[in-house]
Computed example of a mutant assay.
Amino acid sequence: MSHFEAFPEQSELIVRSSGPQSTSIRFFDWSRTDESEVVFAVEAVSDDLRACIDTVTVSVWDGAGDLSEFLDALARDFHGWEGERVWLNNHLILAATFGSGGHVHLTWTLRSGIFPESWRCSLTTTFEAGEEMATFAVDARGFLHQGQTEDLPQH
């Protein structure tokens, strides 16, 4: 299982996995470049590694769409789905699968670039479908859309 911590006053969101190997994904250093683009840093930490991307840029003009909308869709589909769903950015990839027992497995891949010589780091977190995934989606939306209080669902 995973859990997350939202620290709105620090503009930080942490996703932690429990189990034999402690892993976490941390979103921090959020800023808005204009009304249609935000930038933030992402750090992946495990017992034996640490990887960080200082600048992940997400724009409404990206073909990938809004990460918060992707997470909202996963939360709405708590009955499950077949195959893998992917949200793609130049430096961050999120792949979601629905597993047995009603669990959503999120594989976070940080990459230094899109070229073959670029490094990659992947970690997986697991959420219960339904309320746990929905609460995470709301907190992720709060992090990604700071300062935009309209249309934010409450949990």
Rank of each mutant, 00 (worst) to 15 (best):
G130M: 12
T124G: 05
F40A: 07
L88M: 14
L71V: 12
L49A: 15
D47R: 01
D139R: 05
I93S: 11
R120V: 04
E117C: 06
T55A: 12
A41N: 12
F98G: 05
F127N: 02
V38Q: 10
D29C: 06
G80V: 09
A51V: 12
E9S: 14
V45H: 03
G130R: 11
T33A: 08
G63A: 14
G80I: 09
R120H: 15
T149S: 14
E37F: 06
E35M: 07
A44F: 08
A51I: 08
L92M: 09
H155V: 05
W108C: 00
A51M: 13
F4S: 13
S122R: 05
A134Y: 02
L110P: 03
Q148G: 00
A6M: 09
A140E: 04
H91W: 01
I25M: 13
A51K: 07
T109D: 01
R26S: 13
D34P: 14
W30E: 05
D77K: 08
P8F: 06
L71H: 04
R111D: 06
S17Y: 00
Q10H: 15
G83W: 13
F7W: 11
T23A: 04
V104Y: 00
F78K: 07
G102K: 01
P8D: 13
G101M: 04
D62H: 05
A129D: 10
S118T: 05
G83A: 05
E37A: 14
L152R: 14
L74H: 03
D62S: 10
S122D: 05
T126H: 07
T33S: 15
M1T: 12
T107V: 01
D62F: 02
V56H: 09
G63V: 08
A96E: 02
